[in-house]
């Protein structure tokens, strides 16, 4: 083995200029990066962290190789930020469920304005809201790290991959794949409304490991059999309104066919 010398690209890599920003969201996804306590210092060696306003005081706002954005577009300010970051970065990454699907905040799109308007928006005149939407409704997204919150190890995998200049490895396999490997009992069999079969995995089925059914936070798989999933839940005794609301909670905007399937019921 000692003959081995310098496999891979012969390069003296310049560290990638990375920015991590948050728009409307809970900041939990940015926390997920920081939760990699044991590896965070090594991580900072891998890339040149130019901006991370969540934990840094001085932050660049342009000339990024990669920009990572948490949160969804819910205000005019968000929109301006996302567009500016897109202009100033070679690659833009959507971090977390809000950025990827709109997640819970986008649920506003499925309720009547009268139901929520008086609670906040009439009081806060300065807040110029826009329809809550995922980032990719406005700018091109190069890579998605989904999840509410995202898996912290997946974030590490992402950084090590880009630092070496290779494509990060995501998964589009349903949650069930990891869930069965973990030896869990199937929650659908126990009558719980688990969305694992139509939801992209990569989370190691963390919710089901803990006894909670999958709510679909990582968004639908490309290969999902949505109609069958709905049929299964109906047969288990859930009504259409419940099924529709459950499916919309995390990924409503990525399941536009729900409207048609439920036909405006409920």
């Amino acid at each position: 083995m000692s003959r081995a010398k310098n496999p891979g690209k012969p390069r003296q890599p310049k560290k990638l200029r990375v920015g991590i920003y948050g728009i409307t969201g809970c900041a939990g996804c940015q926390l997920s990066i920081i939760f990699n306590e044991d590896d965070i210092l090594d991580l900072l060696d891998l890339v040149d962290l130019q901006a991370f306003p969540f934990i840094k005081e001085v932050n660049a706002d342009q000339h990024f190789d990669w920009v990572i954005v948490e949160g969804l577009v819910a205000s005019e300010q968000d929109l301006a930020t996302v567009k500016k970051l897109r202009r100033n970065a070679k690659y833009l990454v959507s971090l977390g469920a809000c950025a990827a699907t709109g997640c819970v905040p986008a649920y506003r799109q499925f309720t009547l304005k009268e139901n929520y308007e008086h609670l906040l928006y009439r009081k806060q005149k300065r807040l110029k809201d826009v329809e809550p939407t995922p980032i990719d409704a406005h700018v091109k997204v190069d890579y998605y790290i989904p999840g509410c919150p995202p898996d912290k190890k997946e974030i590490l995998g992402f950084f090590t991959a880009i630092a070496r200049g290779i494509e990060p490895r995501g998964t589009d396999n349903p949650v069930c794949v990891e869930c069965r490997k973990n030896g869990n009992a199937c929650l659908l069999d126990q009558g719980k409304p688990c969305l694992g079969p139509i939801t992209a995995g990569g989370c190691h089925a963390v919710c089901i490991n803990g006894g909670l059914e999958c709510w679909g936070c990582r968004g639908p798989t490309k290969d999902m059999n949505l109609n069958l999933m709905i049929d299964i839940l109906r047969k288990k005794g859930f009504d259409d309104r419940f099924i529709r609301d459950r499916m919309r909670t995390f990924a409503g905007l990525k399941l536009p066919t729900l409207n048609r399937i439920f036909h405006g019921k409920g």
Binding site: T160, C176, P197, I198, M224
Partner: peptide, 23 residues
Amino acid sequence: CLSCGACTALCPTCYCHSIHDEV
């Protein structure tokens, strides 16, 4: 079929696998 892969995971004989590098 949901293509969820439960059948192959629970099968005592299914042996398909993938190989990946983790750094």
